[in-house]
Design a protein around this nucleic acid. Structure first.
Lengths: 342, 342
DNA sequence: TGACAAATAGTAAGCGCTTACATTATCACA
DNA sequence: TGTGATAATGTAAGCGCTTACTATTTGTCA
């Protein structure tokens, strides 16, 4: 057993010696760059097999200036908001021979810049980022480094950056209209922290626009802004319900907050949707796990992830540029939304 | 702007030139290996700042044979079974200056071996693996490569490998006894795939032992084995309830399956726990999101993750060896388990 | 069979970094 | 002020890989 690398792993050299060829030939076999006779290839491959050789990633990256790795920086892995989309992203990436490296920021904009650097230091050939809101410095950095990057989970018609997502504002406005059509006028909002989060900003904006269009003054709708956790959603709901005038509908800007709200409603003995309607956004698993099931906005996460992967690979390999794509979302009507009590 | 690395990132050389020192000195500054005068350090640091320099990870790993990276291979990221523990693992790792690289196998034992190789190729200094069940070849490989590794999420008194976890069999047996004490005798089991999954094996074994000790023949308890998804849990529950003799308690070997069961019970109009009791294992978020809330086994995920991180870092840095640790779990009594109907 | 082109294989120069070793600057003290 | 020890810095040899370039083999055809 050779004794060279960190964990005394065999190296290209070992394989070359064992197969009685040069390192260049071994490398060629491993990179399927043709130009190797069938006979030598077999010899090399069986040497690889025999030694249990795996190429050293760092060395390869250093020499090839390419890693077939793509980085994604997402706000959180704690819930499944990004799970399904990322899963599809990864699968499609794999089909193209790429590997995904994920890191999360805990919704902290500063950490995002840091993670981007880390991913790049690790050799990421391209990046998937969530949404638009980030420092100009970060965009400048990306540009200076000439890194292919793609935004996702959001779409804004007035932004130039390559993006594959959906119109958060528009979707939320449609849901709001539906709520209003059911007779609700006393609407309250539970939002996650909006600073640095364009999805949240747009969703709240969508609600406000929906209200305004129906002749309701958006300023009259109470809004509580909390962290993106079930507990905080629950706490916000409790606050709302202890106000002097209870809303008849609580619009949460995502399913995690809404799940918290429903949970707390149950604890407080408030009937949903009889006493109060509750809605979410994203349509993740927990939306249909709570009782009653959540009316929410269904987003084509898997499709989005898959499209994003293909687009990003194309950007990397063919230096193409992607024009923003807006995917359709659809209201998913379930038990948590009902007409206002007579 | 220099034009060297992949994304024309500045290199150590650029920094050295800018600060008018040798690359060795820059490297020393960046690795806080002392032996650099305050004056030069400042000069170097401002050069680093000015250029926006980030060390190339691959090059660093190659030269230092150390990455301060630890790899974890888990079955899935789709649900939060491993999320909380891994989160704590990561946080503690960070405190020690290490970074976590996670990859998942989709519960496929073959993929695990592959992921281990990949992580090692990427320079992982050590590995966190889930449970015991894997090919002897994999253990041999780890040993030959001399990689520090730690098992978690499981503990078996008769296994020698370093592990920090809990006794799945014991915990599940206790829960089973509680169920039996409430008068249930017609018990059914919903298990995930047990092949290659010692946690599942042990949990089912725990149920069987609990039954046997109460004088119930374990073979009479129907068992359905499905994938680890909410849908499969729901389907399994439906199957069970359509059998000729309905059980009065359904023990699921984790919360995901149990959540599916509860969801389906509701759809089928079966009252929980009046008509049937349902229990889970793990105590993840969804356990208290479903109605009624799930009686389950609470596992100290965060504590376990944190301990594992400290232990693994110690193994790496001081070549210590860890003796297996068993953490306590506790039954979390909630609404889904009730006494048998009279 | 000899000449030339095409197909294979080998040589060696780095990629950006760390670090053992060599060199130089600095300082305390006699 | 000279001396030796010590602190600070520089030099250069790789780490394991890819790839441009060069050398060799093989094959083809007249």
């Amino acid at each position: 057993m050779p004794e060279t690398t960190p964990h005394n792993a065999p190296t290209l050299d070992d394989v070359a010696r064992q197969a009685n060829v040069s390192t260049a030939t071994v490398s060629r076999c491993l990179n399927r760059s043709g130009k190797v006779s069938e006979k030598t290839r077999e010899r090399v491959m069986s040497a690889v097999e025999a030694l249990g050789y795996t190429p050293n990633f760092g060395a390869r990256a250093l020499a090839a200036k390419r890693t077939l790795t793509i980085g994604a920086v997402i706000p959180t892995m704690a819930n499944s908001i990004f799970a399904r989309g990322l899963q599809a992203f990864q699968e499609t990436l794999n089909e193209h021979g790429y590997t995904l490296l994920v890191s999360s920021t805990g919704y902290d904009p500063r950490k995002e810049a840091e993670q981007i650097r880390t991913l790049l230091a690790r050799g990421a050939d391209g990046l998937l980022l969530i949404g638009y809101d980030r420092d100009a410095a970060t965009y400048d950095f990306l540009q200076a480094r000439n890194v292919p990057f793609l935004l996702s989970w959001a779409y804004r018609s007035d932004e130039p950056h390559p993006a594959i997502g959906f119109d958060n504002c528009q979707s939320m406005m449609e849901l709001t209209k539906l709520v209003l059509e059911m007779g609700h006028t006393d609407v309250a909002i539970i939002s996650g922290i909006r600073d640095g989060n364009d999805r949240a900003v747009d969703r709240v904006k969508g609600i406000h626009m929906g209200l305004a269009q129906a002749g309701v003054n958006p300023q009259t709708a109470p809004l509580i802004e909390v962290d993106y956790t079930i507990e905080d959603g629950a706490a916000a709901f409790a606050d709302l319900m202890q106000g002097r005038k209870r809303p008849t509908a609580v619009l949460c800007i995502n399913d995690v907050l809404a799940a918290g709200a429903i949970q707390r409603a149950q604890q407080m003995g408030i009937r949903v949707p009889d006493d109060v309607s509750i809605t979410g956004f994203d349509d993740i698993e927990i939306a249909s796990l709570v009782t009653p099931k959540l009316t929410t906005v269904h987003v084509p996460h898997a499709h989005m992830g898959s499209l994003a992967a293909t687009a990003l690979v194309d950007m990397i390999e063919n230096k193409t540029t992607v024009k923003p794509v807006a995917l359709d979302s659809a209201i998913q009507m379930r038990g948590s939304l009902g007409p206002i009590a007579p």
